[in-house]
Design a protein around this nucleic acid. Structure first.
Length: 477
RNA sequence: GGCGGCAUAGCCAAGUGGUAAGGCAGCGGUCUGCAAAACCGCUAUUCACCAGUUCGAAUCUGGUUGCCGCCUCCA
């Protein structure tokens, strides 16, 4: 099976060939920790979480680095605003990042380095850039000279000349080119600062990713990811910095995820429509959020709406309901050891095509329908059972890649039930009693009374299912 | 001004040369006392529009229209 990846560098799908067979080295730009994570962060983190999981599932030895940018102007501003120091700000939001991402069932990266713990590497990197003539000093500041790097603009497809025409950049007379960017920034009084050959200061925005990826992944590595918006200037500048120092290709495949819109609007400060992960999770199960995020191709924009989330919820319920049905009817427990089948094969074909999780989810639902069809038969032949078993483990295998279906179906539904019942302060014993009453009425063929009780329960959002083995009730949330 | 993306059913969404996945909603049916769930069937002769290339186009090329993103901190 050949994996193909859309490479922003070149703007086309390319055959994925790792630098070292069987190994993949990935660097993804993590958050600048100055605020809580919003749903856009969730998309990026979830998308690359799935990519890393998929590589692992395919047997790759994965080194996945996701950094924290924990020193930055925005952090300093926030610190001043809150009247605490910037380190405390960073710590606070790193903690929140983990709370959100753990809730979303995001696996930890192999290495999660922080900029402030790599100041030495950053300083060395800047020194090399100065030595090689790519950077220049202005008092305590160090700038990268974009004109020195011939390929500047190759990732984002811009040319310096074009950009200067309509540029909206601060004119800093001291800079040689308006697009020159700061590598090292001198500290004003009271600002967090580290000693350097150029005086007390802090790293510029882009340099930490060059220094840390070099530290953990080497001069050249396989995949570099991040949100679309990071393409320029952040990733363009990373390329400039890294390739100027090494003289080698920095990254083989650049992968950028699309944005999350809220009701067709971009999240922005002026609209005040930032949707924080922790708020979304108050309403929706984490796996609903993941299913929603993964049901569009990662490069397309995705529109966050209540309707879309509700649909994802219905879809997730449907899959869990099937898993529950299998376990009940066949006594099957999840078994990852079963050999993978056709369903997994088709899922891999979808994922091999530029991580097309949307198509993969289509295959998941195909399989759900197919198993339900089998289970509708009264007698299951040995072959059918085998088939179900194989598909069952494939579904769980897919769940493992997508970070879905991690709960026991029973627990999934029970949790939901408890939550809603508590919210509405309904006592489940009362429901059981009513169900029993209705059962008796049904036995007596008193349909009127039975239906009346059912309607009462329906008003409480409780749906009954009369199964052969008895009546089951479910919350319709 | 520069660069790029998108347009597929009522809605969401796959599909990049071989005759339109999947989900939601809707309708009809099987099952059921009736329901619910599940399943089956139906719901785009057609992929914004106009030309062109091709035996063949949603897919490639050119043009038109409409949305959107980046170029400034941004996932």
């Amino acid at each position: 099976m050949a994996l193909r990846v859309f490479n922003t560098l070149g703007r086309k799908k390319e055959l994925f060939e790792p630098l070292e067979p069987g190994r993949v080295r990935i660097y993804v730009c993590g958050p600048t920790v100055y605020d809580a994570c919003h749903i856009g962060h969730a998309r990026s983190v979830v998308v690359f979480d799935v990519i890393a999981r998929y590589f692992k599932a395919k047997g790759f030895d994965v080194t996945y680095v996701r950094n924290f940018t924990d020193i930055d102007d925005k952090i300093i501003n926030k610190a001043n605003e809150l009247g605490i120091d910037s380190k405390a700000v960073a710590e606070k939001y790193i903690k929140e990042f983990y709370e959100d991402m753990d809730a979303l069932n995001v696996e930890r990266a192999t290495i999660e380095p922080k900029a402030t713990e790599h100041i030495n590497q950053i300083i060395q990197f800047v020194e090399k850039l100065i030595q090689k003539g790519f950077a220049y000093r202005i008092n305590g500041d160090v700038y990268y000279s974009v004109e020195k790097f011939k390929e500047y603009g190759k990732l984002s497809g811009r040319r310096l000349e074009d950009m200067e025409a309509g540029a909206r950049v601060d004119i800093d007379e001291r800079k040689q080119n308006p697009f020159d960017f700061v590598l090292w920034k001198s500290a004003k009084p009271g600002e967090p600062a580290w000693e350097s050959p150029w005086g007390m200061g802090r790293p510029g925005w882009h340099i930490e990713c060059s220094a840390m990826s070099n530290e953990y992944l080497g001069e050249t590595f396989d995949i570099h990811g991040g949100g679309r918006d990071l393409c320029f200037p952040h990733h363009e500048n990373e390329i400039a910095q890294s390739e100027s120092v090494s003289g080698k290709l920095f990254v083989k495949y650049w992968v950028h995820n699309g944005f999350v819109n809220i009701n067709q609007e971009k999240m922005s400060k002026s609209l005040g429509n930032f949707l924080m992960i922790k708020d979304v999770l108050k309403t929706y199960h984490p796996e609903v959020v993941r299913l929603f995020l993964l049901s569009n191709h990662y490069r397309s924009p995705i529109d966050f709406t209540d309707k879309a989330l509700d649909e994802a919820k219905i879809g997730l319920d449907k899959i869990y309901a099937l898993l529950e049905r299998i376990e009940k009817k066949m006594g099957l427990k999840p078994d990852q050891n079963t050999e993978s089948g056709d369903c997994w094969q088709r899922f891999c074909e979808a994922m091999d095509d530029d991580f097309n999780s949307a198509r993969g989810i289509g295959i998941l639902f195909d399989t759900v329908r197919s198993i339900n069809r089998f289970l509708d038969q009264n007698k299951l032949s040995g072959e059918t059972k085998k088939n179900i078993q194989s598909n069952h483990s494939d579904i769980l295998r897919i769940g493992n890649v997508l970070g879905l279906l991690m709960e026991q179906p029973k627990v999934y539904f029970e949790k939901k039930q408890t939550q809603v019942l508590e919210q509405k302060s309904i006592n489940p014993d009362v429901i059981d009693k009513m169900v029993k009453e209705r059962d008796e009425a049904r036995k007596a063929k008193n349909w009127e009374k039975a239906d009346q009780i059912r309607n009462q329960l329906a008003d409480m959002n409780i749906v009954l299912k009369d199964r052969g083995e008895g009546t089951v009730w479910k919350i319709n949330d």
